[in-house]
Simulated assay, not measured.
Amino acid sequence: MKIILLTLCLGLAVLGQEQYESANDNFDISEVLTNERLLNAYAKCLLNKGPCTPEVKQVKDKLPEALATRCAKCTDKQKQMGKQLAQEVKKNHPEIWKQLVSMYDPQGKYQQAWQDFLKEN
Results as ranks from 00 to 15, higher is better:
residue 94 P to L: 10
residue 76 D to S: 00
residue 53 T to R: 12
residue 64 P to V: 05
residue 68 A to R: 13
residue 55 E to R: 11
residue 43 A to S: 14
residue 116 D to I: 11
residue 87 Q to E: 00
residue 42 Y to L: 15
residue 78 Q to M: 03
residue 58 Q to S: 15
residue 117 F to Y: 14
residue 108 G to W: 08
residue 62 K to I: 07
residue 92 N to K: 15
residue 96 I to V: 14
residue 109 K to C: 03
residue 82 G to I: 01
residue 39 L to D: 03
residue 62 K to L: 14
residue 119 K to D: 01
residue 103 M to A: 07
residue 51 P to I: 15
residue 71 C to R: 00
residue 35 N to Q: 06
residue 62 K to H: 14
residue 42 Y to Q: 12
residue 52 C to V: 12
residue 90 K to V: 02
residue 38 L to P: 02
residue 80 Q to A: 08
residue 63 L to H: 02
residue 112 Q to D: 08
residue 71 C to Q: 00
residue 102 S to L: 01
residue 80 Q to S: 05
residue 77 K to H: 04
residue 70 R to F: 15
residue 117 F to P: 01
residue 107 Q to A: 13
residue 113 A to L: 02
residue 60 K to G: 04
residue 70 R to Q: 15
residue 85 L to G: 12
residue 109 K to P: 02
residue 76 D to A: 07
residue 96 I to Y: 05
residue 99 Q to P: 14
residue 101 V to I: 15
residue 66 A to L: 05
residue 65 E to C: 03
residue 80 Q to C: 02
residue 115 Q to F: 03
residue 118 L to V: 10
residue 115 Q to S: 01
residue 83 K to F: 01
residue 94 P to K: 08
residue 45 C to I: 05
residue 113 A to F: 08
residue 48 N to Q: 10
residue 43 A to P: 04
residue 90 K to F: 05
residue 94 P to T: 11
residue 45 C to P: 01
residue 92 N to A: 08
residue 100 L to N: 05
residue 91 K to E: 13
residue 107 Q to P: 01
residue 110 Y to V: 02
residue 118 L to K: 09
residue 106 P to A: 10
residue 114 W to D: 07
residue 71 C to S: 00
residue 111 Q to N: 06
residue 36 E to P: 07
residue 109 K to S: 03
residue 56 V to G: 03
residue 43 A to H: 05
residue 91 K to D: 09
residue 108 G to S: 09
residue 47 L to E: 05
residue 71 C to P: 00
residue 108 G to C: 04
residue 61 D to L: 12
residue 79 K to H: 07
residue 67 L to A: 04
residue 112 Q to S: 14
residue 100 L to I: 09
residue 54 P to E: 13
residue 44 K to S: 15
residue 93 H to R: 12
residue 89 V to Q: 06
residue 38 L to S: 12
residue 110 Y to D: 03
residue 48 N to A: 13
residue 50 G to I: 10
residue 74 C to H: 05
residue 104 Y to K: 01
residue 36 E to H: 13
residue 88 E to K: 13
residue 36 E to I: 14
residue 61 D to Q: 13
residue 62 K to M: 12
residue 107 Q to R: 09
residue 82 G to F: 02
residue 47 L to I: 06
residue 58 Q to P: 08
residue 79 K to I: 10
residue 108 G to A: 09
residue 106 P to E: 04
residue 106 P to D: 06
residue 36 E to M: 11
residue 45 C to M: 03
residue 91 K to N: 07
residue 42 Y to C: 14
residue 46 L to T: 06
residue 103 M to Y: 03
residue 55 E to H: 13
residue 101 V to L: 14
residue 117 F to S: 06
residue 98 K to T: 01
residue 61 D to V: 09
residue 93 H to P: 02
residue 70 R to H: 10
residue 67 L to R: 04
residue 97 W to R: 02
residue 81 M to R: 04
residue 120 E to H: 04
residue 93 H to A: 09
residue 55 E to V: 05
residue 50 G to F: 11
residue 106 P to W: 08
residue 97 W to A: 03
residue 41 A to D: 11
residue 113 A to S: 09
residue 35 N to S: 09
residue 61 D to T: 15
residue 99 Q to C: 13
residue 104 Y to W: 12
residue 111 Q to D: 12
residue 78 Q to N: 07
residue 37 R to D: 06
residue 58 Q to I: 07
residue 108 G to Y: 05
residue 82 G to S: 02
residue 51 P to Y: 14
residue 48 N to R: 12
residue 114 W to I: 04
